[in-house]
Design a protein around this nucleic acid. Sequence first.
DNA 1: CAGCATATTTATCAGGTGATAAAAAGCCGA
DNA 2: TCGGCTTTTTATCACCTGATAAATATGCTG
Lengths: 228, 228
Amino acid sequence: MGCSELSATGKPKSEPPKRISRLEPEKRKKLLVEKAVEFFSEEGFEAGTRELARRLGVSQPLIYRYFDSKDDLVNEVYRKVYVSQWNDAWTATICDRQLPLRARLLDFYESYSQAIFNRRWMRIFFFAGLRGLDINTRYIGRVGELIIKPICGELRHEIGLSRDMPITDAEMELAWIMHGTMFYQGIREHIYCTARSVDYSLTATCAVDMYLTTAPPIVREIVEKASR
Amino acid sequence: MGCSELSATGKPKSEPPKRISRLEPEKRKKLLVEKAVEFFSEEGFEAGTRELARRLGVSQPLIYRYFDSKDDLVNEVYRKVYVSQWNDAWTATICDRQLPLRARLLDFYESYSQAIFNRRWMRIFFFAGLRGLDINTRYIGRVGELIIKPICGELRHEIGLSRDMPITDAEMELAWIMHGTMFYQGIREHIYCTARSVDYSLTATCAVDMYLTTAPPIVREIVEKASR
DNA sequence: CAGCATATTTATCAGGTGATAAAAAGCCGA
DNA sequence: TCGGCTTTTTATCACCTGATAAATATGCTG
């Protein structure tokens, strides 16, 4: 009798009595994942399935009709955020020698900023990173292989050096520094929430010009020393 | 029920308190906070008090003799990490005009890196940041006032411009970019755990030189435009 | 309209959480 | 040695969590 936290008369929760209708499994699953991305990116992955269900306007056990476990749902969130946001054209942009390298890098970071430096992505990324998940490590590896390493190759070409010799760690480091300069702006805006609207184009100009002036002499020394 | 994983047998060296004995409240509280920093920095603040107690080798309710609530303990952790790691000499280092600005900045970042860019600090910082806690925002504000703004002032002086006019947002942005370049190295090392040992001195050289070459013309333009 | 398939909900479980009260154990002075 | 004070533990509480099974509601098809 008692134990009615949800009595028929009063609704303590703020949601209006929306009538929930049946949906095709496909449609429902998509809704679940989308809302889960939004939810976990704000509250972290420790947040409860009941609150998620409440925000969706469905009952909590419904989640388990579409996902075997909470972990299963969380993995779907990862996939959605990490995989679907990647743009295969990025590597091509970096390697398209019809433009000068500086212009290519600026083009790339303009596109990359829009795709990656948004609140949802950034927060999911750090929640996952702090958990030490391998999906995070794999993402970083991908950036290394498909962004950072190609940049190093293009810089070698730009300053007239062989691309045969494998890219060294030190060269990668130089490009990571440029990359980090951009990344930090995303952090300030979406994790700190302290920089209202960051000027990514100014940052990109600083970062790219720094790279293009600082890196060449260092790279030249590295390659020449190795080929002696 | 011998639960004696730690026997009383001979170990006369510097680790006598193997036996779980009474401690002065002061000492016990200090131990609790220290271990809590270590624990929460790895597991996040959602981690349970029972596991923390287990690692301390004490019972879980003991924590509540020294802290009113888990939140109380967590706040102590924040205080310990944020407040106690700040070095008042940093601002002085930046403003000591007996050295050229470049040397001052490199000195500062060497000291700052050692204090801040370690695993404990970085992880606590991001766990708190993702929670949106005001202690985090206040820390950033402090960095802005005591690090970034002084740097902007020194740059103005370096290029012979008045320090009377207030520092503009755009000038702050330029110094934040340099700062972020350093910060990202800490992230790579301690959040991503992907860069084994980052070369902070290389990064500092890149970041500082970028700032000292990129910022002056922009600052000059800003100040002159404003004073016309 | 009836009947059926299934999307969704209600009721519930076992285990974990922060927190409290009472019992136990350790320490020190007489 | 004993008594008393304080630290620490044991035994709990109410609540919340992820997850399951049975009951219900919905919409389609004949």
